[in-house]
Simulated assay, not measured.
Amino acid sequence: MTGVNADDFDFPDAEGGVHFEHLNGADLYFEVIGDAQNGEAPVVFLHGGPGYNSYSFQALVAERLTRSAVYLDQRGSGRSGPLEDTEQGSDTLDLDTLVQDLDAVRDFLGAEQIVPLGHGFGALVALEYARRHPTLTARVVVVNPWVHFPDLARTLLEEASARRGVAFTDPADEVRAATPEGQHPAVGGARIEAAFALLNARDLLNALQFRDQATRMRLEFTDAEGQLIGGGEVQEALVNQGLWEFEYPPFLTELRRPVFVIAGVHDRTSYPEQVQWVADLADADVTVLDAGHYPWLDDEDAFAEALEDALNR
């Protein structure tokens, strides 16, 4: 259900409830639980994907949070409005825009500070918001972050090669040699293209992200309850913006707010390489759980405890 209409909802005040607001040039869906103006920085959940939604996290975790929280479907994703076509093409969708959207939500709620809680790709938005707006950020929490996409593409290609029983061949050197001087070699794009040529994206990510089949089925069942599909437009837009070439680690050294990482040891898209970037360069505190990419699915109690610790320590 993408591109919902504002007439579908009744709008309460900013203290709580469902919102479908036109902010920063986009129609954004978010749900607020609790009072975002009570003086304690609310948690703002930033889903991954890219192009996923906040429904499953809210459905499975919301009751365990002890402070006000905002569950945002990011621009073009989930129940937020679709990306719109302009004279220049599709809506701009990049990290700058997603960070601006987040601050527009904070401003709408009247919150002096927020705690960005980013999952997977959403970790980029959380970290960049904290970097740009340290005075508006109480702390930042990321769950199984993705911060270095050429490295992630290499991980995916290694797994696809192993599952197909073929020798791993990294196209990076060939791409660099063929790239004219002064231009950026599209190493990440070449790696991910080779990976998805060996194994489709869904099967590849499932193999790397889930601890077991029961966890994957639980997520699919929750998604089906939410009746939310889509995300392809967002993924395509970000790929066109050079997503697979994006390397965030140099910016991690500029963070001036406390950073906490919750990692699932069975999520090989994030642990250990992606997590290590954040731990080393942002001086982050890391908690590792016996879980996959969605740790609240594997051990709800352990995840809730880790999140409570990250929010209050």
Score class of each variant (00 low, 15 high):
163 R>H: 03
262 I>D: 05
51 G>K: 10
242 G>E: 11
18 V>P: 10
265 V>R: 15
310 A>K: 05
307 L>G: 03
254 E>T: 13
291 A>N: 06
59 A>V: 06
206 N>Y: 14
48 G>V: 08
306 A>Q: 03
176 R>H: 13
92 T>G: 12
130 A>W: 10
89 G>V: 08
71 Y>F: 03
165 G>N: 04
188 G>V: 06
172 A>D: 10
169 T>A: 14
201 A>R: 13
287 T>N: 07
120 G>W: 03
212 D>N: 14
187 V>I: 11
55 Y>G: 01
294 Y>P: 06
215 T>P: 08
26 A>N: 09
135 T>R: 15
57 F>T: 09
235 Q>D: 11
157 L>V: 08
308 E>A: 15
196 F>I: 10
238 L>Y: 05
116 P>R: 08
290 D>V: 00
77 S>V: 00
278 V>N: 09
198 L>S: 04
288 V>R: 02
275 V>D: 05
108 F>E: 01
196 F>G: 03
271 Y>N: 01
77 S>N: 07
107 D>A: 15
309 D>K: 11
183 Q>R: 15
138 A>D: 15
179 T>C: 03
7 D>Q: 14
161 S>K: 09
85 D>G: 09
245 E>N: 01
42 P>T: 12
155 T>C: 12
11 F>A: 11
223 D>N: 14
190 A>C: 07
219 L>E: 12
163 R>A: 01
177 A>W: 07
42 P>L: 06
245 E>D: 02
74 Q>M: 02
123 A>I: 04
258 P>S: 07
91 D>S: 05
2 T>Y: 02
100 Q>G: 13
297 L>M: 04
308 E>C: 07
298 D>Y: 04
233 E>I: 07
103 D>H: 08
127 L>G: 04
260 F>W: 14
124 L>I: 07
9 F>N: 02
308 E>W: 04
9 F>Y: 14
206 N>C: 13
196 F>E: 15
218 R>K: 08
244 W>P: 05
26 A>T: 00
146 W>H: 14
258 P>A: 12
104 A>K: 09
148 H>Q: 05
101 D>A: 06
75 R>H: 11
137 T>Q: 12
112 E>K: 04
280 D>L: 07
93 L>F: 00
150 P>A: 05
88 Q>K: 15
42 P>M: 11
96 D>P: 05
243 L>W: 01
208 L>D: 07
79 R>K: 09
99 V>L: 07
102 L>R: 06
214 A>V: 12
66 T>S: 13
141 V>P: 03
215 T>M: 13
121 F>W: 10
179 T>I: 10
262 I>A: 09
232 G>D: 00
84 E>M: 09
257 R>C: 03
245 E>H: 01
284 A>C: 02
40 E>W: 13
286 V>H: 09
96 D>V: 12
256 R>S: 15
60 L>G: 00
262 I>C: 12
259 V>Q: 06
299 D>G: 01
243 L>H: 00
302 A>Q: 07
103 D>Q: 10
255 L>G: 01
119 H>V: 10
169 T>K: 15
